[in-house]
Design a protein around this nucleic acid. Structure first.
Lengths: 213, 213
DNA sequence: GTCTATACAGCGATAGAC
DNA sequence: GTCTATCGCTGTATAGAC
C-alpha cells in the first residue's frame, strides 16, 4: 500500500515494490503517459530491473491489473436484494470499488482506454461482460432489450467515473458516496427496468437516422 | 473536409491542409499521442512548415479548436422551447454537434483531457461554463442546487459521449440520434428540474461519508 | 540478483541553405 | 516559402559487468 520512498538496495520484495509503484503511476497517468523510468524511480529501483522481472511494459501493465477483486465474491452484493434497488446497489458498488485501493487499476484502465486501443478492448470485456452481463442476466429482462439497457447503464456509470475520478469535476468529486448513490442510482435503475422509448426496445437498428435537427 | 492525400509542392493553402490534418489527427489520437511529424505526413507537407506557420504544438492545437461553433448562435437552440424538454434539446444538440465536422475538435478535446492537465481545464471551462452554465441559468433554479444539478448532467453527457464516440460501445454507437435522445433526454431533464435526494439539495458537502457498504 | 552503460527509435524544435 | 539537417531530450529495451 505504501509507496517505496527511499532507496532499497538488495530488497527481497523488490517485485512488490515495483508492482505498487506501477499501479499508482498507471492510475495517475494512464498507460501511455507512464514511463518505465518513472515507475523505477518511484519504486527506488533500477529501470532495468523492471524488464528483468516483468518483461515488456505491456506485461507489467497486465500484472498490475490482476486480482483487483474477485467477481464471484463481489457479484452477489449487486445481484442479491430487491430488484427495484439494483441500480442503487450497482452505483454503490462502483463507488466503493473506486474509493478503495482496488480502484487504482480501474483508474489506470479508464485513463488508458481513451488513447489506447487494446486497453479499450480490455475495458469493454472486463467491465461489460464480467460485471454488467451478470447483473442484467439476473433481472429476467427481454433478451432483445438487454444490450441497449446495458449500454445505457454504461453511459451513466462511465460518466460518473469520468467526472468523479478522472477529470474530478466539483461538486461530484467531493460528494459522499451515499448521496451520489441516491442521485444516480435511480437513473441506472430506470435504464435497467424502466420503460424504454419505442424504437429502441428491440435491437432493430436502422442504418439511417430519422430526425437530427 | 477531405484529407490531403498526395504531395502538394508549393500549395498556397498549405496552412489549411495542415489544419484539417491536425484536426483529424488530434481527434483520433488525442493531443499527446499525436506527433507533429504524423500531422505533416498526413498533410503532405514538411514537419518544419508546421512550426513555421503555427509555432509550437500547443498553438497548433488551439488553432484547431477555434470556431467549431458559435455559442451565441447555438445556445438559443437549447434554451428556447418548453422548459420540460430542455433535457431532450440538450442531448440532441450534443449528438448533432458530435456527428458534424465540428465534432472533431470536441473529440480531440475529450481524448486529450484524460491524460493532459491543461486540456482538462479547457474542457471544464469550455463545456461547463460556456454551455451548461447558460442552460442552467435559463431554468430559474435554486442557486444552491445549480452546481450539483449541472454536475449530474455532466456525468450523463460525458458518459454518453465517451461510450458513443470515444470507446464506441455497441449498440449505443450505432443508435440513431432521435432514439438516443428519447432514451437519455429524460434523464438529463430529471437532473435539471426533477427532485434531488435530500442531502445534496444544497451545497453542504460533509467531509465524512455516511454509509458506503 | 542487481545495477551501469548503452543501443536504438521517436519526439519537438531550430538554424540555415535553397 | 519550402525543405534539409540536426540538436537535445525522452522513451523502451538489452548486454554485460559486479
Amino acid at each position: 500500500m505504501a509507496r517505496r520512498s527511499g532507496r532499497r538496495p538488495g530488497s527481497p520484495d523488490t517485485r512488490e515494490a515495483i508492482l505498487t509503484a506501477a499501479r499508482t503511476a498507471f492510475a495517475e497517468k494512464g498507460y501511455d503517459q507512464t514511463s518505465i523510468r518513472a515507475i523505477a524511480a518511484a519504486a527506488g529501483v533500477d529501470p532495468a530491473l523492471i524488464h528483468h522481472y516483468f518483461g515488456t511494459k505491456d506485461q507489467l501493465f497486465l500484472a498490475t491489473m490482476n486480482a483487483p477483486f474477485d467477481p464471484a465474491e463481489v457479484l452477489p452484493r449487486i445481484i442479491d436484494g430487491p430488484r427495484e434497488e439494483t441500480g442503487n446497489r450497482l452505483v454503490r458498488f462502483i463507488l466503493t470499488l473506486w474509493d478503495s485501493p482496488a480502484g487504482a487499476p480501474a483508474a489506470a484502465l479508464m485513463r488508458s482506454a481513451v488513447s489506447n486501443e487494446w486497453t479499450a478492448r480490455l475495458v469493454r470485456e472486463f467491465v461489460v461482460t464480467r460485471i454488467l452481463a451478470h447483473v442484467v442476466k439476473g433481472l429476467d429482462l427481454d433478451e432483445s432489450e438487454a444490450p441497449m439497457r446495458t449500454s445505457l447503464v454504461v453511459t451513466q456509470i462511465v460518466g460518473l467515473v469520468m467526472v468523479r475520478y478522472i477529470v474530478k469535476v466539483e461538486p461530484i468529486a467531493s460528494t459522499p458516496p451515499a448521496q451520489l448513490t441516491a442521485a444516480i442510482g435511480p437513473t441506472v435503475q430506470h435504464y435497467l427496468t424502466g420503460d424504454l422509448p419505442a424504437g429502441l426496445r428491440h435491437a432493430e437498428l436502422p442504418a439511417r437516422t430519422s430526425a437530427t435537427s
